[in-house]
């Protein structure tokens, strides 16, 4: 293994390769072009919505490229006075975070058991669990509604936590299972505590090693829960349990004539998620990279 420090090593690598002439220049132009493209397509819709939300209705219907003549906050005032954003945001956060934590906790154990132990029926169980990802939503609506009503959870946040968690089952099992499979058994045994039981091995060794997979599955489950409106429609009813994504649906109908207000409502709906994401993203990245201890 090289004794040279990382920083020195990287700089030598860069100088050596950047001396490679036209090909390297073209390569780096291409790379920046790709990044510029990513930036454009990721930002353009959001920027368009933000700019348009300050326009008047006639300006929105005029030109997409124009800049609002008299930037107006009316849309925001309208949207804010009519809605309970903090409450809806809290409901979304509780349901999404609750579901994500519960899904990783429960399905992680099953994924581990199936990945680590080859017992009679283990492959069949895995196949059956995975098949759930291919069911279209429609046949699921009725049974889920029935279960939630029977459990007396209709119109509670618990209903959303439970359903979003279970919706994450295939993703959690699939990602965590395939990751646990790649962890060599001897690594576990080497780090293992003598006489440790399965629970201890799992929580102290396997799970920490699987942090990238946990984070990946967690992000997917969180985003799916955060963006759901269908189950919020079917399983909740009162304002006290309304989530942000479902509230957005009201705005679409309420302000359907009034494009600036509709767009302002979209901005307001997205704003808290973006703030929280920006605040947490270092945490997310760190936990993802935490897996680097392996190897």
């Amino acid at each position: 293994m090289s004794q040279v420090g990382t920083r020195a090593n990287r700089s030598t690598g860069v100088t050596r390769n950047s001396g490679g002439g036209a090909g390297a220049v073209a390569g780096s132009v291409l790379r920046y072009a790709v990044l510029a493209f990513v930036l454009l397509i990721s930002l353009a819709p959001a920027l368009w919505v933000i700019v348009s939300s300050f326009k008047t209705n006639a300006e929105v219907l005029g030109s997409a490229l124009s800049i609002p003549a008299n930037p107006s906050l009316d849309g925001y005032a309208e949207a804010l006075t009519r809605t309970k954003f903090p409450l809806f945001f809290m409901n979304s956060a509780i349901a999404s975070v609750g579901a994500t934590v519960a899904a990783i906790g429960i399905f992680g154990m099953a994924a581990y058991a199936l990945a680590r132990y080859d017992f009679w029926g283990s492959r069949a169980i895995y196949a059956v669990l995975i098949s759930s990802v291919f069911i279209s939503l429609i046949p699921m609506l009725q049974p889920i509604t029935l279960v939630i009503r029977t459990l007396g959870l209709y119109d509670t946040r618990w209903a959303l936590i439970l359903v979003y968690m279970v919706k994450g089952l295939p993703v959690a099992i699939f990602i965590l299972h395939s990751y646990f499979k790649t962890i060599p058994k001897d690594l576990e045994e080497a780090a293992g505590i003598d006489g440790a039981n399965m629970w201890q091995t799992y929580t102290r060794i396997a799970l920490p090693l699987a942090r990238p997979a946990v984070a990946a599955a967690g992000v997917l489950i969180f985003l799916n829960s955060w963006n759901d409106f269908l189950f919020a429609l079917l399983l909740t009813q009162s304002e006290n349990t309304r989530t942000l994504a479902y509230a957005l649906r009201f705005f679409e109908n309420q302000f359907s004539y009034d494009f600036p207000t509709l767009l302002a409502a979209i901005v307001l709906t997205l704003f808290p998620s973006v703030v929280v994401y920006v605040m947490l993203q270092e945490q997310i990245q760190k936990s993802l990279i935490g897996g680097a201890i392996r190897g």
């Binding site: 819709p45 994504a245 957005l248 679409e252 979209i266 997205l270 973006v274």
Partner: peptide, 20 residues
Amino acid sequence: IRSISLLPNLIPPAALAIIY
């Protein structure tokens, strides 16, 4: 860019469809 690239995923598909 890493942060921005996830931004569209935070937009509910319904809203993204309206935008498009």
